[in-house]
Amino acid sequence: MQMRTIEISVGVFVLAGILAMVVLVVKVSGVSLQSDEGSYVIYAQFDDVAGLRKRAKVSMAGVTIGRVAGISVDPAYGVAVVALEIDKEIAELPVDTGARILTEGLLGARYIGLTPGADGEILLEGDFIEDTQGALVLENLIGDLVTRLGAS
């Protein structure tokens, strides 16, 4: 076979490999190329984030408006601090916006649902959401139920 043909096909092969890598990173892992400029970060404290993962959805009325940028624990108070990355387009969230940890379906992934507030002031970069409700942990619910049944 001609050396030139070989060179061209090797070039196409390597290109295909690199292209496949780009497809994996962009399409499969969902890293968006213009993520940083169009978002701001607010925080929320939860008693329990049970199973919430980084890059989980943040949604309002079922529409995804951001992602979980990071989860850490505040050892002084024993609460989880979750950083929420919200799209710039949703810039005017009132300070009394509520955040709840919800589950998609029965066994689905955890995500954060925001419920709108009515206050005139809005949340700015780095602010904390006051009104939060942690994840429902099945064991705790069952524990509650058992104590209540036992009491009655």
Binding site: M21, G30, V31
Partner: peptide
């Protein structure tokens, strides 16, 4: 299908 995949797959951890 796609968003479930994108939520779960991490660039370093998986790819």
């Amino acid at each position: 299908f796609w968003s479930g995949m994108q939520d779960a797959v991490e660039v370093w951890d998986d790819i």
